[in-house]
Structures are given as C-alpha cells and as structure tokens.
Design a protein around this nucleic acid. Structure first.
Length: 150
DNA sequence: CGTGAGCGT
C-alpha cells in the first residue's frame, strides 16, 4: 500500500521537476503518411489532372507553337496561355490539356526541364481551382425528397 | 532596349 503512495509522490515529483515530458505513452496515428488523397499517384505532386501547368514560356510564344510542341506527345485538347491585358504580352505561363493523363505525364516528363525558344520550360500539373469558371449550380428548386411538387 | 516567379476568364 505504501508503494502506491510512493509511486504517486514520485509521479508528482516528476511532474514538478520534469515538466518537459507531459505524455509520452500516447502516439497519434492521425497521420498515416503517404498520400491521403484518393486516386493520387505516388510519383506526381499536385493534382493528377490532364491539365498541365506550363511555365517558363517565352513572352513571345504562341499557343499553336506550344500545342504543336505538346501534340507530339499526345492529343492536346486545350491549350491556353495567359496574357496580360495591361502590357498585352504573355505572362510566360499557360495550360495544356491532354486527352489522357498518361500522355500528359509523358509530355511533362519529356518537356519539363527542357528549353523552348531559348528559355527552360517548367511543367507541372495544374490545380483544379479555376477562377471565373462556369459555376454549375444544382437545381435546388427541383430537389424534392418526397416527390411532392415539381 | 531590359525583365522571369508562378496557377487561369
């Protein structure tokens, strides 16, 4: 019985003398490491979309040139280069859409780091965030759980 | 005439 009191005192002393060790027995399994995103390839940062973010482009590069350069690796469905409305010149970055992710990956792996028009290209997967895109709003007026009314 | 990281209507 005394050992209990001793242990308690020991704990109290430890708590008083060693404040730097609050709880050591608890391990948090919250982070299971690895990619927590579903359908996320382990060898590809950002979102694995068909959209490729191409930066490092020359300010005088055209979309057709970029598309032609990327069409060699796969079927390019969309090529968009961002232009500045103030200076009227390209911002040096654009987006390339591929029909297949595999082609996009191949094109990225093949063109990323290479130089086009004298400037090194920086290719990476584009983000899913799109500003000013068509906002699709579900028909909340037609949502009826009981089928009453239309 | 030069400039150069980045994520789009």
């Amino acid at each position: 019985m005394m050992s209990n009191a001793n242990a308690l005192m020991l704990l109290a002393r430890r708590a008083l003398t060693n404040i730097q060790t609050p709880v050591l027995s608890f391990r948090c399994f919250c982070s299971q490491s690895s990619s927590s995103y579903s359908s996320a390839p382990s060898s590809s940062p950002s979102a694995p979309n068909n959209k490729l973010f191409v930066a490092g482009l020359s300010w005088s590069l055209d979309e057709r040139s970029l598309k032609d350069a990327f069409s060699s690796f796969g079927e390019v469905t969309e090529v968009r280069i961002m232009y500045d409305k103030d200076s009227g010149r390209s911002r040096g970055f654009g987006f390339v859409n591929f029909t297949n992710e595999d082609d996009a990956q191949t094109a990225k792996d093949a063109m990323d780091g290479k130089a086009l028009l004298g400037r090194p290209l920086r290719i990476s997967f584009a983000l899913d965030k799109v500003r000013g895109g068509p906002v699709v709003i579900p028909r909340l007026s037609n949502i009826n759980m009981f089928g009453r009314r239309s």
